[in-house]
Design a protein around this nucleic acid. Structure first.
Lengths: 259, 259
DNA sequence: ATGTCTTTGTGAACGTGTGCACAAAGACAA
DNA sequence: TTGTCTTTGTGCACACGTTCACAAAGACAT
């Protein structure tokens, strides 16, 4: 350790917990809104409410970034916007490629939130030759053949995969080989990547299934909270089985009753 | 756990951890793929690899559902598909409404994964009168005025919000008032809902920001892993400041340098 | 039946995340 | 300056999640 500073500014940079990182964008959004309304300062309580989190959690989150608040007053909105932006790396420009310009890819290309914060759609790529040249969101779609070329020329390190599941791993491999080290995957597949490459997935179907689980829970629990009188008819139709034979008939049950 | 002895199926159902619930769809997908290839049984090791998780975690996850494996053999694929489907509530039909038929809403309506597992798009709703009647994904878009009507008639309990941020809370309120108790929110806003209503959010911009954070981390770390030679030029331009003056100049720094 | 071999199911240790509650820091007033 | 009042920053305890490691369960061969 060659630092030589007085007290440990410590490795806070390394030490920011994932859970905190995941919330920083949320705070940033709330702060940006305040900034637009020219609100000069905000307390942890107010900001936490706007971001939908606990105020103690928010303060602890900010403490990982450093001590940017003023006791008795709160946080300076502009300053905090800058600090969080910097911590998230949004003060620099991130060229992004979107691969797979189907319905979803096109929607992503058109999504305003993309461009707003440091992200720039550098290219739209699709495997369909018929798509090549067609403009989507003001950008001409390029063919997959150009992929490596585009990534290297533009210094792209973030790729978005919006292809069908079957093509995702292959596209992923090519992206990684060409130098991409962060991938946002919308295809319903588990991607395998080498160490050092980050993958985040967004899976509509999984989200819905999680909701369905909780929804079913509520329906089963009934008696208590049951604000919605509807949605029952359908549920009943499916309740053909004992509906609560967990643990099962001990094991002699054959592997039947599939979907 | 403390229970007597014999078999206390206990309240396992209540006790399924959220983290486990979130992985069940992942397992289900892997199992469905195996099922389609007519694979009869699978070990925790194999299945874990396919789902991209640790095998011990997978076994523990399954243990919350009951003891569906056979020691020395593994899990029966078909049986497990059924059990997980049932646990997730996918053996019943879930009518879903999508509100906001812009680029994203249309993409969602066309998304095959929706219909595949128990979910059925009951209606597409948009505030633009010009959209009304237009077919998207084979379904005629209906006007927002019909919202309450549609939800009640179809017993919809799951709603998807794909509107602009500004309209999201209002749409959410109407959905909830009409009986929806689970919401999948694509709008970049924090939704406020009463107790008993579940909200899950999917936020493209947040995912990208998290990736940017890690990407920046990698770039800062350099020296070690740095497969991508590109992407540096831009990064440099942003490195105007000391680049590592965290903790800041002690506090006299004015709140300037915003985005 | 007995033994061997495979794989589950889970106790226990560990790591991460959350939230309370309060001392300390600073603003502001007199 | 001194005192009061607000709000941060954080120690601590607890809840949740992950992973290891292994005994017990069962399949299968002999």
């Amino acid at each position: 350790m060659a630092t030589g500073r007085t007290h440990r500014p410590a490795t806070r940079s390394r030490g920011i917990p994932e859970a905190t990182v995941a919330r920083l964008p949320l705070y940033l959004r709330a702060l940006t809104a305040l900034s637009e309304r020219s609100v000069p300062t905000v307390s942890s309580e107010e900001l936490a409410a706007a971001a939908g989190v606990n105020s103690a959690k928010l303060r602890k989150d900010f403490s990982y970034l450093g001590s940017y608040g003023t006791r008795g007053v709160g946080y300076d909105v502009e300053y905090l916007v800058y600090q969080i932006s910097r911590e998230l790396g949004l003060t620099q420009d991130w060229p992004v490629v979107i691969v797979g310009i189907g319905n979803l890819g096109a929607a992503l290309a058109n999504y305003g939130g993309f461009a707003s914060r440091g992200f720039r759609v550098a290219a739209l790529i699709d495997a369909d030759p018929a798509m090549a040249g067609k403009p989507v969101a003001g950008i001409a779609v390029q063919h997959t053949d150009e992929l490596e070329h585009i990534i290297e020329d533009n210094g792209v390190s973030i790729g978005v995969i919006a292809t069908p599941a079957g093509a995702a791993q292959q596209v992923c491999d090519r992206l990684v080989a060409a130098g991409v080290t962060s991938i946002l995957n919308f295809a319903p597949t588990v991607l395998t990547v080498p160490d050092g490459v980050d993958v985040r997935k967004v899976d509509l179907s999984i989200e819905l299934q999680i909701l369905a689980f909780h929804e079913q829970r509520k329906a089963g629990d009934d008696g208590a909270a049951a604000p919605a009188p509807a949605a029952r008819a359908v549920a009943e139709a499916a309740a053909v089985a004992p509906a609560d034979d967990r643990k099962g008939p001990d094991g002699d049950v054959p592997a039947v009753m599939p979907a």
